[in-house]
C-alpha cells in the first residue's frame, strides 16, 4: 500500500471509531435520567438567584482577596529571595519550598482549625477569614517564584542604565525593573489567577456560614438538599464563565509575546 493510501485508511478508521463510540453513548445513555438529575429546570430555578448574588459573588471576592494578598506577599518574598542579605534569602526559599510542597487543603484546614486551637487565635472573619489567609499564604509561594523569574528576566542593562543615571536601588526597582518584570509575567500570573479561582473551592473545608458560601460549597449543600446534581452543573457553568475569558486572555498574551520577540 502506498504511504498516502495508508494514511487515508488510518484516518478513516479514526473517524469510524469516533462515530461508533458516539452512537453507542447516545443509544445506551438514559437521557431521561440524565435530564432529571443533571439538567432539572425546577432545581435549577431554585438555585437562582443565590448562586449568583451569593455563591459566584463570593468566589470572585475570595479570589480577588487571595490574589491581591498573594501578589503583595509574593512580591515581598521575591525581593527577599533576590536580597543580598543571606538570611532573607533562606527564609524566602524555605517559605516557598514548604508552601508549594503542601496541599492547599491541608494549609486551609490548619489555619481554620489547628492554628486557632494551638495559639488561641480568633481569625478575623471567622473560619472563612482563616481559610482566606491560608489561601493567600499558599498563592504567595507560587506568585513569588513567578515574580522572581520575571525580575531576573529584565536585562541587566536596564538596571545599569538606571543606576548610571543616579537612581538609587529602590527607585530603580520600582520605576524600571518591576514594571518590565510584571509585563513579562502577565501570562503566568493570569494562570495563577485561574488556578486560584478554582482553589477557592477548597475553602469549604474551613466550614462556612450560609452567606459566606462560594460556588462549590453552595453546590454541595444544594445537591444534598435537593438530592439532585443540577446545582453542580450550574456551579460548573459559573466557573467556566469566570475562567474561560481569562484562559483566552492568557493564550492571546502568549501569542502576542511570541510575536514581540
Amino acid at each position: 500500500m502506498k504511504p498516502s493510501a495508508r494514511r487515508r485508511l488510518f484516518r478513516g478508521v479514526l473517524y469510524a471509531v469516533f462515530v461508533i463510540v458516539l452512537a453507542a453513548v447516545i443509544l445506551v445513555a438514559d437521557w431521561e435520567a440524565i435530564q432529571t438529575n443533571f439538567f432539572n429546570p425546577q432545581v435549577a430555578a431554585a438555585a437562582f438567584p443565590d448562586v449568583i448574588i451569593t455563591a459566584a459573588k463570593n468566589t470572585i471576592i475570595y479570589t480577588a482577596i487571595a490574589f491581591v494578598g498573594g501578589l503583595i506577599l509574593g512580591l515581598i518574598l521575591a525581593l527577599m529571595k533576590l536580597s543580598p542579605v543571606a538570611p532573607y534569602r533562606w527564609v524566602a526559599t524555605a517559605y516557598v519550598e514548604i508552601f508549594r510542597g503542601l496541599p492547599a487543603l491541608l494549609v486551609i484546614f490548619g489555619f481554620a482549625f489547628a492554628v486557632p486551637i494551638a495559639f488561641d487565635w480568633r481569625p478575623p472573619g471567622g473560619s472563612a477569614g482563616a481559610g482566606l489567609i491560608a489561601l493567600i499564604i499558599v498563592s504567595a509561594a507560587y506568585i513569588a517564584e513567578t515574580l522572581r523569574a520575571g525580575i531576573e528576566a529584565v536585562p541587566a542593562g536596564q538596571r545599569e542604565a538606571a543606576r548610571s543615571l543616579g537612581m538609587n536601588p529602590s527607585w530603580t526597582m520600582v520605576s524600571v525593573v518591576l514594571p518590565q518584570a510584571f509585563r513579562i509575567v502577565t501570562p503566568p500570573l493570569t494562570n495563577e489567577l485561574v488556578i486560584l479561582i478554582k482553589d477557592t473551592s477548597l475553602l469549604f473545608i474551613a466550614g462556612m456560614a450560609l452567606g459566606e458560601r462560594e460556588l462549590t460549597t453552595f453546590a454541595r449543600d444544594s445537591v444534598s438538599q435537593m438530592a439532585n446534581a443540577t446545582p453542580l452543573v450550574i456551579a460548573a457553568l459559573m466557573y467556566l464563565i469566570i475562567t474561560l475569558p481569562l484562559t483566552q486572555l492568557v493564550a492571546k498574551l502568549e501569542r502576542h509575546n511570541k510575536r514581540g520577540r
Partner: peptide
C-alpha cells in the same frame, strides 16, 4: 555614589532605553 553618578553621563552599546 548616586550623587556622583548624576554628574557622569553614560551611553551604552545597546542603548538601554527603558522600553516601557
Amino acid at each position: 555614589l548616586d550623587k556622583i553618578r548624576t554628574r557622569i553621563g553614560m551611553v551604552f552599546q545597546q542603548f538601554n532605553l527603558f522600553p516601557h
